[in-house]
């Protein structure tokens, strides 16, 4: 009698995680619509050229950077709340009493997050393109950048969300606990405001966290290279972005392994 593999259990966990997500229709609609609505609001309010004579508008800058928020919200926030909920409603306790492994549980969560993040990012791109004429890159190399940014951002945010879930004492407090750092970093990392307008000390501190690099990375994919001069370093810094995000993946992995508990106690 061989035990089912972690991979096959993880796959079937992914299936039922996605199934459970899409059956909560109101939660799905509002969670996914939130970043898109913010993009629309900010885009309509700041619909001016970034520089006199520039073809790029502030709306486009927001639309590109807001992809970072879409990933934060679907990976970090949803994961943190999701695990707190699983801990509160007995999901984790029940799984603990079966032969399923923590690895299979997390594989299921990662499948869920990729599903949600791809959906969210597609929605944000749709808003950017249709409402604010965000140009989609025509060459492969920008899309390659987009792909590795997606993967590194989703993995880092998911792992950090797992770690953050143990900060919340219950499923009810989880949204408040998780939203606060996200909201702060959105402002200080130049997602909700134009990064060139921020005090440099604030940006320097924010540069320690992944959000600033995610926003900068997605701007580099969708904005013309002339806009790199608006960034803190005056360039897109793709190498440094990859390194910082990779480092956060490792930090997230270590933190989640150290803090994850099957039960609240």
């Amino acid at each position: 009698m061989t035990m089912p593999s972690v991979l096959s259990n993880g796959r079937s966990r992914g299936y039922i995680e996605v199934l459970q997500l899409i059956r909560q229709k109101d939660a799905v609609i509002f969670t996914f619509a939130f970043p898109a609505l913010l993009t629309i609001l900010l885009g309509l309010i700041f619909d001016t050229p970034v520089m006199p004579g520039s073809p790029t508008t502030h709306s486009q800058v927001f639309a590109a950077g807001m992809i970072a928020y879409g990933i934060l919200s679907t990976a970090f926030i949803s994961m943190g709340i999701g695990i707190a909920v699983d801990r509160g409603d007995g999901t984790l306790k029940r799984l603990r009493g079966t032969p399923v492994t923590a690895g299979a549980y997390f594989l299921g969560k990662i499948v869920l997050v990729f599903f949600a993040a791809i959906f969210e990012v597609a929605l944000l791109l749709l808003v950017g393109v249709l409402m604010f004429d965000l140009p989609l890159p025509a060459d492969v190399s920008h899309w390659v950048t987009f792909a590795w940014l997606m993967v590194l951002s989703v993995v880092a945010c998911t792992l950090l969300g797992i770690a953050a879930s143990s900060l919340a004492s219950s499923a009810r407090s989880a949204p408040a606990v998780l939203n606060l750092p996200v909201l702060v970093l959105q402002f200080t990392s130049g997602i909700f405001v134009h990064i060139a307008a921020l005090p440099s000390a604030m940006v320097n501190v924010s540069a320690l966290f992944p959000v600033k690099w995610m926003g900068q990375g997605f701007r580099s994919v969708f904005l013309p290279d002339a806009l790199a001069s608006e960034e803190v370093a005056g360039s897109w810094e793709p190498g440094r972005t990859a390194l910082v995000l990779l480092a956060w993946c490792v930090i997230g992995l270590v933190l989640s392994l150290l803090t994850f508990r099957w039960s609240r106690r």
């Binding site: 259990n9 039922i16 459970q20 699983d86 007995g90 306790k93 009493g97």
Partner: peptide, 27 residues
Amino acid sequence: GIVLQSATDAGDLTVRETVRHFAGYYP
């Protein structure tokens, strides 16, 4: 086999989906 006392998980899944899914954990 552990029969839990007060779990409220898997509310959005059907009985069949849930039982089938858990069967997949066992040899």
